[in-house]
């Protein structure tokens, strides 16, 4: 207290001067306003009340930690309780979170209340000093640097300098080379899928080969190539390219000639992988034959060659040429173009 008192007179003086200055400059800085005492500074009973409030908060925190440990021990992890308005929730998660929250919050609230009511709230001023060094310091540093540079003979012995730069420039190449085995080269991987002539279409949900009569008008069926099983080691990599969607459209409603030629009795098969960034397309509008990708809302017209009619996709959905053999749907050939998002070599 006495120390801050010592600091104050200079401020008070400015305040006084300010009053004098006001005659000439009414906008002048009046200096720091005098400190206003809180009730806790003057009334010890109020200070005691604050002390008790802080101690109470710390006490609540202690109790909450005990409650946390008790909940951890007592509440079974799979217990579900109904708590309004949260609904049916995990009792343990709720109890642990709430007790931990209270335990932490009360420490914080206690500390802040202590600072606000009992610790000195007198504002004091500290001086700032320029960040930049004084000219003498700068001169000394530059001279030191010049000495060091001269002593190293770096500027004089060009051969050393140039070979050192060469060595330092080359050595990171080792690090770059080491990254080569992060993955294989792309080769034809992005252009090929598991579909080729004679591969049957298998229903994703029933795992049975599809017959034309399985595809009803207005329905959306997902298919995969026969032989691809969920248990396969590379199932995800394969289904990421092979996933297919089938719809049946009245043949007279198919606008695109090639689409009609590649269809069977109005059944058309399209890649399910969006040509934008590869999300699986899953929303089908029966009346318009539009499909919508739920990720970025690219919309394709399945009755018109899978043309993009809205959204950020850049090209039509690839169609799979299908036919029927022995009563089952099968691919008449592989995809004519790469499926999924476009890439530099796609062409």
């Amino acid at each position: 207290m006495s120390e801050t008192e010592e600091n104050l007179p200079s401020e008070r003086e400015t305040a006084h001067e300010g009053a004098v200055v006001k005659a000439e400059n009414p906008f002048a800085d009046p200096g720091l306003p005098p400190h206003e005492h809180r009730v806790q500074d003057t009334d010890e009973r109020a200070a005691k009340r604050s002390e008790r409030a802080v101690a109470f908060l710390f006490l609540v925190s202690m109790l909450a930690t005990v409650a946390f440990i008790a909940s951890y021990v007592a509440i079974p992890i799979d217990k579900i309780v109904y708590i309004f308005p949260l609904g049916h929730i995990s009792a343990l998660n709720f109890a642990l979170g709430l007790t931990l929250g209270v335990a932490l919050f009360c420490i914080g609230a206690g500390a802040v209340h202590w600072a606000r009511t009992l610790m000195s709230d007198e504002e004091v001023a500290d001086e700032r000093h320029p960040i930049a060094a004084a000219p003498e310091v700068k001169a000394k540093v530059l001279a030191d640097f010049a000495d060091g540079a001269r002593e190293s003979q770096f500027g004089r012995r060009k051969l050393i300098r140039n070979t050192m730069f060469g060595a330092l420039a080359l050595v990171p190449l080792s690090g770059v080379v080491l990254l080569r085995d992060l993955g294989p080269l792309p080769e034809k991987k992005l252009r090929t899928t598991g579909w080729k002539k004679g591969i049957r279409l298998v229903n994703q949900s029933t795992n049975l080969p599809l017959r034309p009569e399985d595809i009803a008008v207005g329905s959306l069926t997902f298919a995969k190539p026969e032989g691809l099983e969920e248990s396969d080691e590379e199932f995800n990599e394969k289904i990421a390219k092979d996933a297919l969607m089938l719809v049946r459209i009245q043949p007279q409603n198919i606008k695109d000639k090639q689409e009609l030629a590649w269809s069977h009795e109005g059944i058309v098969a399209y890649s399910k992988i969006c040509t934008h960034v590869g999300c699986p397309i899953s929303l089908y509008e029966q009346q318009t034959h539009h499909v919508l990708c739920p990720c970025h809302q690219s919309t394709f017209d399945l009755s018109d060659g899978g043309r993009v009619i809205f959204g950020p996709a850049g090209h039509a959905l690839p169609q799979l040429h299908i036919t029927v053999k022995d009563g089952f749907l099968e691919a008449a050939s592989g995809f004519a173009e790469p499926v999924g998002p476009s890439f530099w070599e796609r062409g």
Partner: peptide, 11 residues
């Protein structure tokens, strides 16, 4: 104290 307040609220 504010650290504990933030932590408490997030908990």
């Amino acid at each position: 104290g504010f650290f504990f307040l933030v932590f408490g609220v997030i908990a």
